[in-house]
Simulated scan of single mutants.
Amino acid sequence: MTQPSTVLILGARGRFGMAATRAFAQAGWQVLAQLRPGATGPAIPGVLWLAAEPGDTAGLAAAAQGAAVVVQGLSPVYTHKAWRRDLPGLTQAAIDITRALGATLMLPASVYNFGETMPALLREDTAQAASTFKGRMRIASEAQVRAATQDGRMKAVVIRGGDFFGSGTGSWLDEVMVKDIRRGKLTYPGPMNVPTAWAYLPDMARSFVEVAGRRDHLPAFEMFHFAGDQLTGQDWADALAEIAREQGWVPAGGKLRASSMSWLLMRALGLVLPNVAALCEMRYQWRTPHALVNTRMAVLAGAEPHTPFPQALRTALAELGLLTPRKENAVKKSTVTMQAFERSAS
Score class of each variant (00 low, 15 high):
V7D: 01
V7K: 01
L8D: 10
I9W: 04
I9V: 15
G17F: 08
F24W: 09
F24I: 01
A25F: 10
A27E: 08
G28F: 10
L32M: 09
L32S: 01
L35A: 08
A39Y: 10
I44D: 07
P45G: 04
G46D: 07
L50V: 09
P54W: 04
P54R: 10
D56C: 07
G59D: 00
G66S: 00
A67R: 06
A68N: 05
V69Q: 08
V71F: 15
L74V: 02
T79F: 04
H80Y: 03
R85L: 12
L90I: 00
L90F: 11
T91V: 14
A94C: 05
D96C: 03
D96E: 11
R99V: 14
T104Y: 12
T104A: 05
L105C: 11
L105P: 13
P108W: 07
E116D: 11
T117S: 12
L121T: 06
L121R: 11
L122H: 02
S131K: 00
K134Q: 12
G135W: 06
R136H: 15
R136I: 05
S141N: 10
V145I: 15
V145T: 13
R146Q: 15
T149W: 02
D151W: 06
G152P: 13
R153C: 12
M154G: 12
F165H: 04
D174C: 05
E175S: 11
M177W: 10
K179I: 12
D180M: 06
I181K: 07
R183K: 13
P189R: 08
G190E: 01
M192C: 09
T196C: 02
A197R: 06
A197H: 04
D203V: 04
A205F: 02
V209W: 08
V209G: 13
V209M: 04
V209H: 08
E210I: 09
P219G: 13
A220F: 03
E222C: 01
H225G: 00
G228Y: 02
G228C: 04
D229F: 03
T232C: 03
T232R: 05
D235A: 03
A239R: 00
L240C: 04
A244S: 00
Q247R: 03
P251N: 08
G253W: 06
K255S: 14
A258V: 14
S260W: 06
L264Y: 00
R267M: 08
L271G: 13
L271N: 01
C280I: 10
E281A: 10
R287L: 13
N294I: 07
M297V: 10
M297C: 07
A298M: 00
V299W: 01
L300T: 11
E304M: 09
E304S: 03
A312M: 07
A316V: 01
L320M: 14
L322V: 07
L323C: 04
L323A: 11
K327S: 10
N329V: 05
K332N: 03
K333Q: 15
K333A: 14
T337V: 12
M338D: 13
A340N: 14
F341V: 15
S346R: 15
